[in-house]
Design a binder for these strands. Structure first.
Length: 142
DNA sequence: AACAGTCTCAACCGCATGGAG
DNA sequence: ACTCCATGCGGTTGAGACTGT
């Protein structure tokens, strides 16, 4: 998805020294991966500076973790994975990073998105049938 | 074909936490 | 003990894709 919006980088943003916002370009991805290969995936402020992307360390980290990292599974979440997510969510609540840790190749962002767009609806429907709301179901104290 | 409504997902934001000094 | 800074996390947003009318 990110790549298909790449061409639409607003001219204003490229002209100013404002930090880049919006979708990453293939070129940015390449630079980021290159810097991480040399310096490692830590000290994100340094990585951002070395890559000279006009992106903050936070953005670089997120991009790496959710998209560029090796061994990332993309697309279809299997029935087993879905079942695991449901069970872990019941156990842990909205602790997406913990849940993601149990699903090799999946990112917390992906699981969070999947939950919000698919599973929360399923739960709601179930809740309507059983009288238990999705919210009540996964509340957890920090 | 055109439009409106809905869905999906990458990316951003703000806050919390932890470590260094 | 305190402050500052970097990092991590979860919630939210928004643009494009998709679907229905």
């Amino acid at each position: 998805m990110a790549t298909m919006k790449n061409e639409s980088l607003k001219p204003m943003e490229t002209m100013t020294n404002m930090p880049n916002k919006g979708a990453w370009t293939a070129e940015e991805d390449r630079k980021l991966a290159e810097v991480i290969a040399i310096h490692g995936a830590r000290r994100w402020k340094t990585v951002a500076a070395k890559a000279a992307l006009n992106r903050c360390g936070k953005s670089c980290r997120l991009r790496w973790l959710n998209y560029l990292r090796p061994n990332i599974k993309r697309g279809n979440i299997s029935d087993q994975e879905e079942d695991l997510i449901l069970r872990l969510h019941k156990l842990l609540g909205n602790r997406w990073s913990l849940i993601a840790g149990r699903l090799p190749g999946r990112t917390d962002n992906e699981i969070k998105n999947y939950w919000n767009s698919h599973l929360s609806k399923k739960i709601k429907q179930k809740g309507k049938q059983t009288g238990v709301s999705a919210k009540e179901d996964h509340r957890v104290e920090k």
